[in-house]
Structure formats: C-alpha cells, structure tokens
C-alpha cells in the first residue's frame, strides 16, 4: 500500500496519519490567526455602518442591518475630525522629518572614530534609553519650558530615540570608510559629507525608521491628555477617539446599573449611541494605517534585520 500526501510517499499508515493531522493543525492555526486578527475590524466596521439604535438590539456581526452614515457624520462634527486629522498628520510628518534628520546627523558624528568626544557623547545617548525620571518630573520640565498648550509639545520632547540612533549608526558603520575618507581628503567638510553622502546612502534604513517614528507619532495620545487637554484645537485623532472610548465606557458602566427600560428610553432620545460612535471613531483612526499598510510592508521587513540587533 502506498500513501501520498503533498507529493511525498509514506511507508506506514501511522506516519501518513500523523502528517495529515499536522496539515490540518497548520490549516487551523493559519485560518485562526487571519480570522482572529481581521474579524474585530470587520465587526467594528459593520457596527459603525449600522443604524445606532438598531445596533443596541444586538446581532450586528457580519453585515449591517440598517445602513447609515449617521455615525460618521455625527463624529465628523462632534469630534471635529477635520481638525484632528490635520493635527495628527502635521504631527506625524514633522516628527518624522525632525527625528530622521537629527538622529542621522548625530549617528554620523558619533560614528566617526577620530571624534574625540565620541565615547562620552555615545554613553550619554545610549544611557538615555534606560533612564526615565517618571511622569511628573518630565511634566514639570515641559511646563517650565512653556511647551504645554502648544503644538510643539508633540514634537520637541521626542526628537531623538536611542534605539533609532543605534539602528542608524549600525547602518552607517556598514558604509565603506573610503567614501568619507576620499571626500575628506578633498577638503569636504562633515556637514557636506553628511548631506551629500550619508543621507542618500542611508535611504533604506531611514525608510524603516521613518515608518516606526511616523506610526509612533500617529498613535500617541497621552501627551495630549497631559499637556493639551484644554486646547480642543490641538486634539489629535487618537485623543478624540480616546475621549469617545471613555464615554462609551461610562455608558456601559451605567448600563449595568440602570434598568434596561430606562436605558432604552435614554438611547432612543438620540440618533447615535456611544457604542456606534466608538465604532465609527475606531474605523477613522485605523483607516489611514490600513491604507498605507500594504505599501509599507517591504520596509519593515527589510528593517527588521537591522532592528534585531538590539531587540
């Protein structure tokens, strides 16, 4: 008797069954990981597109029952989405540009072996990865610099990360010294070398670092709560979503206390509910990442080899 599976020949029924069982296991795991990752988005999307009061009846899992864009329209105004989007994009873009420029410049300077201050400077930067004075000491620093209540509080405190510094410096060290050496002999200054050689040569690693800086800046919300919570014009998209989320948390808390009848009357009075609003907000905050995700893959896969040095 011969048994075949995936082009392979099996000599015993036992090994054939083991192999077949393993194939089933693999298929189950792969399907599970894809479904479990994607389904929450789908569920949230259909809830956001379903009429809010109808959603409270339950049963919205795969497809909207009563289609509506009311939830989106509602947060577009109440959460001031256009402004929040603008602030979030401005934050992500300026943070990324400044981060990349400054970190690469520092990494280049501290990769030059002959630089007499290389060791102490490198130590100061690397140790910063492990030193954290804590929330309130940092808070008072920001306050004394009068950064609170301004857009700059999003940018200035996080311009350098020691981790990105390591990643970029490691990359610069792989560039043959001879390139810099010959330029230097020609009398080219370090600023010129940085601009005309280092920055262009670092493009692959900078793409990856940019991805991580941009995502980090896009996803941040706690600094808004801490420093700009009385400046609605500086609210980011994530902060607005956080506010919606907290509202819905309070609602579900009261839902447990109040009897259902009182609750239902309360909900019918309005055309939107915190649950539906939360769903729409979640989709708003996720959509930009989902849209750029397919294009970014190649960068983070390339960059991982570099990143794995320290992680």
């Amino acid at each position: 008797m011969t048994l075949r599976l995936g082009g392979k020949l099996y000599l015993s029924t036992r090994s054939y069954l083991a192999e077949a069982g393993f194939s089933v296991y693999k298929a189950v795991v792969l399907t599970a990981i894809v479904l479990i990752t994607l389904y929450p988005f789908w569920n949230t999307l259909v809830i956001s597109l379903n009429q809010a009061v109808d959603t409270t009846r339950g049963g919205i899992y795969l497809w909207p029952r009563i289609w509506t864009f009311q939830n989106y329209k509602s947060i577009w105004v109440t959460a001031n989405i256009p402004n929040a989007l603008f602030i979030s994009v401005a934050r992500a873009v300026s943070s990324t540009i400044l981060n990349l420029f400054l970190t690469t410049m520092l990494a280049y300077a501290l990769s030059r072996r002959e630089f007499v201050l290389r060791r102490p400077f490198t130590m100061i930067v690397l140790l910063s990865m492990y030193v954290n004075a804590g929330l309130f000491p940092n808070y008072f620093l920001i306050r004394s610099l009068h950064l609170n209540g301004t857009f700059w509080v999003y940018i200035i405190p996080s311009m350098i990360s020691a981790f990105n510094f390591i990643v970029i410096r490691t990359f610069i060290k792989t560039i043959p010294d001879s390139i810099f050496e010959s330029a230097r002999i020609d009398g080219t200054g370090d600023f010129r070398i940085f601009r005309s050689f280092v920055l262009p040569l670092c493009k692959p690693v900078l793409a990856t670092v940019a991805l991580f800086v941009a995502v980090g800046a896009w996803n941040a919300w706690f600094d808004t709560l801490l420093y700009n919570s009385n400046k609605p014009e500086l609210f980011t998209l994530q902060y607005q979503l956080m506010a919606l989320l907290q509202q819905s948390m309070n609602q579900s808390r009261s839902a447990a206390d109040i009897n259902t009848a009182g609750m239902a009357a309360n909900i019918i009075a309005s055309t939107v509910t915190p649950i539906s609003i939360r769903a729409a907000g979640t989709i708003f905050a996720t959509a930009p990442i989902l849209m750029v995700y397919p294009f970014l893959q190649k960068y983070f896969v390339v960059g991982l080899n570099v990143g794995s040095i320290k992680e």
Binding site: L102, M105, I124, V125, V131, N138, I160, F191
Partner: peptide
Amino acid sequence: QRQLLWMSLPIVLYVILFTYVPLAG
C-alpha cells in the same frame, strides 16, 4: 573637528535636558 562638534553637541545637550535634567525632579 568643529563640524562634528556642531553636529552632535546641540543634540547631546538636548538629550541631557530632556532625559537627565528631569531627574532633579
């Protein structure tokens, strides 16, 4: 190495200000 100094010193001072100075807190 003036140019290297200009490229690194301000950033290192920045790191000191935002990471180590708050320790005084």
